[in-house]
Amino acid sequence: MSLLKSLILVLIGRNAKSYLSKAKELSDGEIADKVIKSKDSQLFGILYDRYSNKVYNKCYSFVKNSDEAKDLTQDIFLKVFLKLHLFNSSKASFSTWLYVLAYNFCTNYVNRDKKKKYMDEPMDDHEYHLSNDEVDIEKINCLDEGKLIKALDSIPPEDKSLLLLKYQDDVSIKDLQDSMGIGASAVKMRLNRAKAKVIKAYEKL
């Protein structure tokens, strides 16, 4: 770990000092805007305190290892601090922007593990038709939770990330469209195909 990274992580992990107490009453977007202007790492620490546990849990869902998840969480917040100038509070909430960044980071990390295989086989005609129709999310919600988690872990991380963003974090189609740089119809198609893959993986368990 570089000296710069160590220093930043120490700073953002500390509780905000007393003179920042009023800042804790601000919204995420307001704090982010102030950090962008001031580069105040202690002010950024408020955002870290609000979201570090949530980001850790998301990281853990991908790597299933506490130490790895902690390292990923620190890496993600370091990247957030350095890339915060790209955040625009008028276009998306801070949580949406953060979760998209976190999922992308985890996806890239997991994809570097060449030993792990994911279910990304070509779909047969029935499955292809299913993926292009509206797949009812309630069908997935009614599945056994333990098996569903295993099914999610067996599909490509890009598909898992997309499903979690939409159905766990309640990110809108519009925000997904903006973050992915594709049209709404393309987002919906990818969501349906991801849901079809989960159902297929679940049925194989």
Rank of each mutant, 00 (worst) to 15 (best):
M1K: 08
K5D: 08
K5R: 09
S6R: 12
I8A: 08
L9G: 10
I12Q: 06
R14W: 02
R14P: 00
N15G: 14
L20S: 06
L20N: 10
K22F: 12
L26H: 02
L26N: 07
L26W: 03
D28C: 02
D28V: 05
G29L: 14
K39Q: 10
S41T: 03
Q42G: 03
L43G: 06
F44T: 05
G45H: 01
I46W: 00
Y48I: 14
Y48L: 11
D49V: 04
R50D: 07
R50F: 04
K54V: 12
V55N: 02
N57F: 03
K58G: 15
S61R: 03
V63S: 09
N65G: 10
N65I: 04
S66P: 00
K70T: 12
K70S: 13
D71V: 08
Q74K: 11
Q74A: 13
D75C: 11
K83T: 12
L84V: 14
H85E: 05
A92Y: 00
A92V: 10
A92E: 09
S93D: 05
S93F: 02
F94G: 09
T96Y: 01
L98H: 04
V100E: 06
N104A: 08
N104S: 13
N104W: 01
F105L: 01
Y109G: 10
V110N: 09
D113S: 15
D113A: 14
K115D: 13
K116I: 14
K117E: 08
M119R: 07
D120P: 04
P122D: 11
M123K: 07
D124S: 09
E127W: 05
Y128E: 15
H129R: 08
H129D: 09
L130P: 11
S131N: 01
D133N: 12
E134Q: 06
V135N: 04
D136P: 09
E138M: 07
E138D: 11
L143M: 13
D144L: 06
E145H: 03
E145L: 03
E145R: 01
G146V: 05
L148D: 04
I149G: 09
L152T: 12
E158P: 04
K160P: 12
L162D: 10
L162S: 14
L163N: 09
L165A: 14
K166F: 08
K166I: 07
D169R: 04
D170T: 02
V171R: 02
D175P: 00
Q177W: 00
D178M: 10
M180I: 02
M180Q: 04
G181Q: 02
I182F: 07
G183S: 13
V187E: 05
K188F: 01
K188E: 14
M189W: 00
A194G: 13
K195W: 01
K195D: 11
K197C: 11
Y202P: 13
